[in-house]
Lab assay of single mutants.
Amino acid sequence: MQIFVKTLTGKTITSEVEPSDTIENVKAKIQDKEGIPPDQQRLIFAGKQLEDGRTLSDYNIQKESTLHLVLR
């Protein structure tokens, strides 16, 4: 499924993921596309910071959901 990751600069990254993918996994995909190390990434969805060990389905993230990427 496709999800969108919006950066603070307003850029939107499209990523191909599975509901069973972990947040860590998603951060790795963002690193592949943007070159941002996962340890600098914080992903936010519905006002919550997403934890690395959890999966997209844990957070009820569905296709075409938009996550927000904040850098630390």
Rank of each mutant, 00 (worst) to 15 (best):
M1F: 15
M1E: 03
M1N: 04
M1D: 03
M1H: 05
M1C: 04
M1V: 07
Q2Y: 13
Q2L: 15
Q2S: 10
Q2P: 06
I3D: 01
I3N: 00
I3P: 01
I3E: 02
I3K: 00
I3V: 06
F4I: 07
F4N: 05
F4W: 08
F4R: 06
F4V: 06
F4K: 06
F4L: 06
V5L: 08
V5K: 00
V5A: 02
K6Y: 08
T7N: 05
T7M: 15
T7P: 05
T7Q: 06
T7E: 03
T7C: 12
L8N: 12
L8G: 11
L8Q: 14
L8C: 15
L8K: 11
L8W: 15
T9H: 12
T9E: 12
G10H: 04
G10M: 04
G10E: 03
G10Y: 03
G10N: 05
G10D: 04
G10P: 00
K11L: 09
K11I: 09
T12L: 13
T12S: 06
T12M: 12
T12C: 12
T12H: 06
T12G: 03
I13D: 02
I13V: 06
I13K: 02
I13P: 02
T14G: 04
T14C: 09
T14H: 06
T14I: 14
S15F: 15
S15D: 04
S15E: 13
S15M: 15
S15P: 09
S15Q: 15
S15N: 08
S15L: 15
S15H: 13
E16Y: 14
E16C: 13
E16N: 12
E16P: 05
V17I: 05
V17P: 00
V17M: 05
V17A: 06
V17C: 07
E18V: 13
E18H: 14
E18A: 12
E18F: 14
E18C: 11
E18M: 14
E18S: 14
E18N: 13
P19Y: 07
P19I: 08
S20H: 12
S20C: 07
S20K: 07
S20G: 11
S20M: 10
D21I: 04
D21T: 10
D21C: 05
D21L: 05
D21N: 07
D21G: 03
T22W: 05
T22N: 04
T22F: 08
I23F: 02
I23W: 01
I23A: 02
I23N: 01
I23G: 00
I23R: 01
I23M: 03
I23P: 02
I23L: 04
E24V: 07
N25V: 13
N25G: 09
N25I: 14
V26S: 00
V26Q: 01
V26P: 02
V26H: 00
V26I: 11
V26D: 00
K27C: 02
K27E: 01
K27V: 05
K27A: 03
K27I: 08
A28K: 15
A28G: 10
A28W: 12
A28M: 14
K29H: 09
K29L: 11
K29V: 07
K29W: 13
K29P: 01
K29S: 08
I30C: 02
I30P: 01
I30D: 01
Q31T: 09
Q31L: 11
Q31K: 09
Q31A: 14
Q31C: 13
Q31G: 11
Q31W: 15
Q31H: 14
D32G: 09
D32Y: 11
D32V: 12
D32M: 13
D32E: 13
D32I: 12
K33P: 04
K33Q: 13
K33N: 06
E34M: 15
E34V: 15
E34Q: 06
E34R: 05
E34F: 15
E34N: 09
E34D: 05
E34I: 15
G35V: 03
G35A: 05
G35R: 05
G35H: 07
G35W: 03
I36V: 07
I36D: 03
I36K: 03
I36W: 15
I36M: 05
I36E: 02
P37F: 06
P37H: 10
P37I: 06
P37A: 10
P37W: 07
P37S: 09
P37C: 05
P38S: 14
P38H: 12
P38D: 05
P38G: 09
P38Q: 14
P38E: 09
D39Y: 11
D39F: 11
D39K: 10
D39E: 12
D39P: 06
D39T: 10
Q40M: 12
Q40T: 09
Q40H: 11
Q40I: 12
Q40E: 10
Q40R: 11
Q41Y: 15
Q41I: 14
Q41L: 12
R42K: 13
R42G: 08
R42M: 15
R42A: 11
R42I: 15
R42V: 15
R42C: 14
R42E: 13
L43V: 03
L43P: 01
L43H: 00
L43W: 01
I44F: 15
I44W: 15
I44R: 05
I44M: 12
I44N: 05
F45C: 02
F45E: 01
F45P: 01
A46L: 12
A46W: 08
A46D: 13
A46V: 06
A46H: 13
G47T: 04
G47H: 06
G47D: 06
G47V: 02
K48N: 09
K48Q: 14
K48T: 12
K48A: 09
K48P: 01
Q49W: 14
Q49F: 14
Q49H: 11
Q49L: 15
L50Q: 01
L50F: 01
L50S: 00
L50E: 02
E51L: 09
E51Y: 06
E51D: 09
E51C: 08
E51Q: 10
D52P: 06
D52R: 04
D52G: 05
D52S: 07
G53V: 07
G53R: 09
G53Y: 11
G53I: 07
R54M: 12
R54T: 05
R54V: 06
R54E: 04
R54K: 13
L56Q: 00
L56W: 03
L56G: 01
L56D: 00
L56R: 00
S57M: 11
S57D: 09
D58S: 14
D58R: 01
D58F: 14
Y59Q: 04
Y59I: 02
Y59A: 02
N60H: 09
N60L: 07
N60V: 03
N60S: 08
N60Q: 09
N60W: 04
N60I: 03
N60A: 07
I61A: 02
I61N: 00
I61V: 09
I61K: 00
I61D: 01
I61T: 00
Q62T: 14
Q62S: 10
Q62K: 12
Q62A: 09
K63H: 15
K63W: 09
K63S: 15
E64M: 11
E64A: 10
E64G: 15
S65R: 02
S65D: 14
S65L: 04
S65I: 04
S65K: 04
S65G: 05
T66Y: 07
T66D: 03
T66V: 14
L67G: 01
L67P: 01
L67E: 00
L67M: 05
L67C: 15
L67Y: 00
L67W: 00
H68K: 07
H68D: 07
H68G: 04
H68V: 13
L69R: 00
L69P: 00
V70Y: 12
V70T: 08
L71M: 09
L71N: 08
L71Q: 07
L71E: 07
L71Y: 10
L71R: 08
L71F: 10
L71H: 08
R72I: 15
R72Q: 11
R72T: 12
R72Y: 12
R72K: 13
